[in-house]
Simulated scan of single mutants.
Amino acid sequence: MTSQVEHTDVGAYALGILEEPDRTAFSNHLASCPSCTAELQELSGVAGALAGIGPLEDERDDADTGDRGPAEVVNLLRRRKAADRRARRGTFVIGAAAAVTLVAGGIAVGTSISGESGSAPVGHSAHGPAEDAYRSGTPLAGTGASGVTGGLVLETKGWGTHAALELRGVKGPLECELVAVSRSGERRVVTGWAVPERGYGVPGSPEPLYVHGGVAWGPAGIDRFEVRTTGGDTLLTVMV
């Protein structure tokens, strides 16, 4: 055999249709050829499935239904195995591309959420919406109970007034509400929240509290805003 013949005889060897001298030579060849050994393992299952089956039909020529000789069977096996390998390679490429996309997407999402880069992602703020709204406006300073300070930023909307509150100097546990009081004395709750025991804007917990909400009245119809506890105490009053 030539080396070319040896490499192309895997199918014939799997089907057991090589002449004895060629079969012996090919067996010796397998000991030193990993690629032929791997292909033989792939073809072994197909060869077993073909045992006892009559003539094979080439899928590419439905009109040809005649018997096939050993060479034609081997060629058909080779074409089908090559097609299988191409399909597997295509699936692998698609899967790899999807994996790269997911990994890249996961890195981007993780960076956006965690902010581990040390700065806010492009197009996003490092603060929450309440703090953003407060920082973007001109605060109205409030008058607070002992140690309590804060202010409000108001924004006129088509539906009423958006209010963003900064609050410092409160300790919990407390439940509080931001209440809008109209010029006629009507009261509306803008938003509510709970103050944990550690508090906000106090020693050991220096960060202030930021909350926001809305009321259906325009600024012209509002007299003041009050920060009140559910127990009825007023912690901060902001005149409009």
Rank of each mutant, 00 (worst) to 15 (best):
L56H: 04
E72W: 02
L43W: 01
E42W: 02
R89Q: 11
G95H: 11
G90R: 03
A99T: 07
V100H: 11
Q41T: 10
H29E: 04
D22C: 02
E57T: 01
A83G: 11
S32E: 08
R85M: 08
A97N: 13
T91S: 15
C33R: 00
E19S: 13
P21H: 10
G69I: 06
A47S: 11
A71Y: 14
S27E: 12
V46H: 03
R60Q: 15
A51Q: 09
S32P: 01
E72F: 02
D64C: 04
A38V: 04
S35Q: 09
F92A: 13
F92C: 13
L50P: 03
R23A: 11
G95P: 10
D22R: 05
E59P: 08
V93H: 09
A25D: 03
R78F: 10
L30M: 10
A49M: 12
L76A: 02
D84T: 10
A31Q: 13
F92S: 14
Q41H: 15
S32G: 07
L40S: 01
E59D: 09
S27R: 10
G66Q: 07
D84Q: 12
A83L: 10
E19H: 11
R89F: 10
S32C: 04
A47N: 01
P34E: 02
N28V: 05
V73G: 06
E42K: 00
A47Y: 01
A31K: 12
T37A: 12
G66F: 03
I94T: 14
P21M: 11
D61Y: 12
G45I: 04
S32L: 05
H29W: 05
A98F: 14
D22H: 00
A38F: 01
F92I: 10
P34A: 03
L43S: 00
F92Y: 14
T24I: 15
R23V: 01
P34W: 01
L43G: 00
A98C: 14
K81Q: 14
L56T: 01
C36L: 04
S35Y: 07
D67R: 08
P34C: 07
A25Q: 03
A83Y: 09
D64I: 03
A96M: 14
S44C: 15
G90P: 03
N28P: 00
E72C: 08
D84N: 12
S32N: 09
T24F: 14
C36G: 01
N28Y: 00
D61Q: 13
F92N: 11
P55F: 05
I53A: 07
A71Q: 15
D64S: 06
E72Y: 04
G54P: 03
R80T: 03
K81E: 06
G66I: 02
A99I: 06
D58Y: 00
R78Q: 14
